[in-house]
Amino acid sequence: MAPRPNAGTKGVPRADREQEIVRVASVAFGTDGFAATGVADVAHAAGISKALVYSYFGSKEGLHAACLAEAGGLLAAEIERVARDGSAGVERGVRTLAAMFAVLDDRRHVWRLLRDRTAPADGPAAEVVAQYTARIEALARDGVLELLGDAGTTDELDVSAMVRTWLGIVDSLMDWWVAHPDQGAEEMTQRVARLIAALVSDQTRRRGPAPGDATPAPTPQR
């Protein structure tokens, strides 16, 4: 296989070359999984030598950690952007998911990379995962605190339970979406909006008048 233009050739800035290696490796790890991907596979796809990959990243684990850092940072940055746009409550949740769908629409391998069950449970990768997970969970907690605070709920265990619930919903929806490649980002955003609207409207219908609501006057008897 002939090397790609500017891949592994003299004169290419190191940062550009590293970025290209990470891009190629992210696709490989996200498509085939950590266990099934070798440094030789990445080097071949990038049109460079294994030695060059090792010289930049030290090991397969180091390369994998670099891929995870970029992927986790990409998602966290989008979630942070939504957190700054002034939306709140349910609207913030829908916008967060919409942003995730949009940024991953043409690179769903990134989500599979982040969810890879064959990846090491310790080492550099685990450290990177812990960092971006903490970053995303902090954003989720902020959103939940705002949502529950508006409803008058401040119990810390309620907050903790809701954070885990929301993160579980996000993971499940993203997993479903990645498993349905025919569904685009806009279609998924509309689907999520419909599902959440159905849940909210159903709960409103079922609860009846809340304590303190005005009670309809009885119909006069004739």
Rank of each mutant, 00 (worst) to 15 (best):
G168Q: 10
L167V: 14
M100W: 03
T31Y: 01
A36F: 00
S172T: 15
G149E: 07
V22N: 04
G152R: 09
S201K: 10
L97V: 10
D150N: 11
Y132P: 05
A198H: 12
A125N: 08
G184I: 13
A28Q: 09
D175C: 06
W176P: 00
D16R: 10
D105Y: 07
D202T: 14
T9Y: 00
L148D: 00
D171A: 15
C67S: 04
A25T: 13
E70C: 08
D116M: 12
V129F: 05
E91A: 13
R135P: 02
H180N: 15
A45I: 02
A35P: 00
E80M: 05
S55R: 09
S87M: 00
I48E: 00
T154S: 15
A193V: 10
F29T: 02
I169R: 10
A102H: 12
G184K: 09
G8M: 06
L113S: 15
E127Y: 02
A43N: 04
V24E: 13
A126P: 01
G62I: 02
G208I: 12
W111L: 14
R117I: 14
A66H: 01
L139I: 12
R191C: 04
L148N: 02
D32W: 09
V53Q: 00
M174A: 11
F29M: 09
P124M: 05
V39P: 00
R191F: 08
E18D: 11
A99G: 15
A98L: 09
A45M: 08
V82A: 07
Y132V: 07
A28N: 06
R205M: 14
R107L: 02
I21P: 01
G168C: 12
T133H: 10
V82H: 04
G89T: 07
E156M: 06
D122L: 08
E187R: 10
R17N: 09
A138L: 12
G72T: 01
A161G: 13
R115N: 14
T37W: 08
A210N: 06
L114D: 05
W111Y: 10
P218W: 05
T154V: 14
S49E: 07
T31C: 01
A134M: 02
E146T: 14
P220V: 07
T154I: 12
Q221E: 07
A43G: 06
G208C: 03
T189G: 15
G208D: 03
G86W: 06
V200N: 11
Y54A: 02
A119T: 12
T118W: 10
Y132T: 01
P120S: 13
G89H: 09
G73Y: 09
R14D: 04
R191T: 07
G152C: 08
Q221H: 10
A7E: 11
A214P: 06
G93A: 09
G8W: 07
R92Q: 12
V27L: 14
P216S: 03
S172D: 14
H44N: 08
D41V: 01
V103Q: 09
A76D: 04
V110C: 09
A140F: 05
M174L: 15
D105M: 11
V27M: 10
T96Y: 01
L114R: 09
P218Y: 01
H64I: 01
P120L: 07
R107W: 02
R115V: 13
D106R: 15
A102K: 15
V82F: 05
Y56N: 04
G212M: 07
A46P: 01
A193Y: 03
G72I: 04
D150I: 03
I169W: 13
A7D: 11
W176I: 10
